[in-house]
Structures are given as structure tokens and as C-alpha cells.
């Protein structure tokens, strides 16, 4: 398999790993958002009437379904590989740039968001820290913690909704959450189209579409995530 390890160790191979894990995480974000939107089902129901039922049932499904479980391991792996590879690239690139920096710094780019493009390392690190807190707070509690229980039609379900809504009562946390979403937005803005370019997908006719979709995606997805805690903070 030396050809394969050679490929993975090459500069383009490393970038391809970033691209593929990144694309996988991009898809994950969409599914995660779909789940999170079920937090909002209290809008349709009477708050007194079993708040968070849809969300809690969804959370149970996600933690017990064997297929989802299998995919989730792939997800953990992707996150780790994406993050670690990202840091490796970051450090290699800094080394390639050299210790003597330019006295005048200009960030002119031919296309796209120069801030995002040249700060992917920082943005990724912020997102990673957010992720650690996020996982500790919800994922780990769901897995190991003592959650209050809810009962739906006689079925006992962990009431994740309860701790989520509790967390969203803190203004500080909501702000932290929203800022993290901004970091994700910037990270996506560059990452989305960059993933395609790295895979060699660049076409004079279709690349503008990819870029357009990427821009829309990088705004709408983080916005969708951010709206939930803000809405819950103010209206629940």
C-alpha cells in the first residue's frame, strides 16, 4: 500500500483528505440542522403540552438506530482527521512561508473571501473548541449523563430538550453559540467551493454554480443553527 500512503502524504493527497472529510461534514451539518429544527416544534404546540417531544424522540432515534450509529463513528473520525490534518497543514504552511514575515500585508485574492481563505486554521480552531464544549454539554450528557426523563405514550425517553432549553436561557451561552456559527459560516464560505477545487472539479460553466450554492449554504446553514437559541432565548 505504499502507493496509497505516498498519496496520502503528498501535498495534494493531504488536501484531498481535507476536501473529502470537509464535504462529509458539510452534509452532516444539513442533517444536524434538520434535527435541531425540531427544537422549534414548541411553536406549533402549546408549550404546556409535552415540550420537546419531537426533538427528544429524534434524539433517541439518533442514538439507538444501528445504521446511524455506524455513520456516527465515521463522523467522529472525519472530525478528528479534518482537524488534525488541518493543523498539520497549517503548521507546514507556516513553515513554508518562513520566519520572516512581510512588513506590509495585502490580502488580494482573485476570487472568494480573502479573510476566510487565509484564516481557515484559526476559524477551524474556534470551531473545534466550540465543538468540544458542545459535545460535552449535550452529546456526552445524552450518552453518559443523568438526564431527566420524559414519557411519551408510556415510552421512557431522555429529555435532552430540557438541558438544551436550559442552556439557551443563558445570554452568554447564546452569544457564544451565535459567534461560533459566524466562524462556521466563514469556514464554510471558503471550504465549500475549495473542496470542489481540490478534487479537481472546476469547470467554466459549472463552477460559478458551485460557488453560488456554497455561498448560500454557508449563510443559510449557520443562520438556521443560530436562529434556534436566539428565538428560544427570547420567546420561550
Amino acid at each position: 500500500m505504499s502507493w496509497f500512503s505516498d498519496f496520502l502524504a503528498s501535498s495534494i493527497g493531504r488536501k484531498v483528505v481535507m476536501s473529502l472529510t470537509g464535504l462529509f461534514l458539510i452534509i452532516f451539518l444539513l442533517i444536524h440542522l434538520a434535527g435541531n429544527l425540531q427544537l422549534m416544534d414548541f411553536i406549533a404546540h402549546d408549550p404546556a403540552d409535552e415540550p420537546g417531544k419531537a426533538f427528544n424522540l429524534y434524539a433517541k432515534f439518533m442514538t439507538t438506530n444501528p445504521l446511524i450509529k455506524a455513520v456516527s463513528y465515521l463522523l467522529y473520525l472525519s472530525i478528528l482527521v479534518h482537524a488534525i490534518q488541518g493543523w498539520v497543514l497549517w503548521s507546514k504552511n507556516r513553515k513554508a512561508r518562513g520566519s520572516q514575515k512581510y512588513a506590509v500585508k495585502v490580502n488580494k485574492v482573485a476570487d472568494g473571501n480573502s479573510f476566510a481563505a487565509s484564516n481557515m486554521g484559526w476559524l477551524g480552531t474556534i470551531i473545534f473548541i466550540f465543538l468540544l464544549i458542545h459535545l460535552y454539554q449535550f452529546w456526552l450528557q445524552m450518552k453518559l449523563g443523568k438526564l431527566p426523563m420524559a414519557y411519551y405514550d408510556g415510552e421512557e425517553v431522555k429529555n435532552l430538550f430540557f438541558i438544551v432549553s436550559e442552556a439557551y436561557e443563558s445570554l452568554g451561552y447564546v452569544i457564544f453559540y451565535v459567534l461560533s456559527m459566524v466562524a462556521i459560516a466563514y469556514h464554510l464560505d471558503h471550504g465549500f467551493q475549495s473542496a470542489f477545487q481540490t478534487l479537481g472539479i472546476n469547470h467554466r460553466k459549472y463552477t460559478p454554480m458551485i460557488k453560488w450554492v456554497g455561498r448560500a449554504y454557508s449563510i443559510l446553514i449557520p443562520l438556521g443553527f443560530a436562529v434556534i437559541p436566539v428565538y428560544m432565548y427570547f420567546f420561550m
Binding site: S10, S11, K15, A96, V109, S114, S194
Partner: peptide, 19 residues
């Protein structure tokens, strides 16, 4: 690409400053 990597150049993160 092999030689490029040996020479100690960085990796492309599609910033497009080059263009």
C-alpha cells in the same frame, strides 16, 4: 508534485492570491 513537495513549498488551500 513530488519534487514540489521536496522543495518545501506549502500546500494549496485555494486562497487564489496567486492568481
Amino acid at each position: 508534485v513530488k519534487q514540489m513537495d521536496l522543495e518545501g513549498f506549502g500546500m494549496c488551500s485555494n486562497i487564489t492570491a496567486c492568481e
